[in-house]
Amino acid sequence: MKIIVVGIGNPSFGDDGAGFEVIKKLKGKVATCHLLSPSLELLEKIKGYDLAILVDAVDIGLKPGEIIEFSIEKGKNKERFGGLTHTLSMEEIVTTGYELFPNEMPPKVIFIGIQVESMPPFKKGLSTPVKKAVEKVINEILSLC
């Protein structure tokens, strides 16, 4: 199975760099790619793979370091799809991909989110709970490969 792991986030903004840290440690073991924020580039990167795993920092009121995971392939993301931003939302990008490139998109797209503790500007390095979460996520991804 061809797998790509996409780390999303800005390593210059504390825990926002969680996704980047995950793919940094997975390099050489699986195909990886880094994006600072969700953009249409994502489609170009994941087209042609069987499984795309998107790892991103989340700030949805969980305990710092807590991990959430869900599939966002077509049909599973409708309730979250809606509302647009200057940078497009992940669901919108993935949904757009399935609409326009149905044969090239990975049949499965998994989203893994790590709850942040803090995201101070231009401060590199992760908080302790997010560091621990990064290790957990890496092990989980390696178990899928």
Partner: peptide, 18 residues
């Protein structure tokens, strides 16, 4: 005007409903 108010910190959900 395509406002750009802040930065690349974008943690999920990444969109701000009205």
């Amino acid at each position: 005007y395509d406002l750009c108010l802040a930065c690349a910190t974008h943690a999920y959900p990444g969109h701000y409903p009205t």
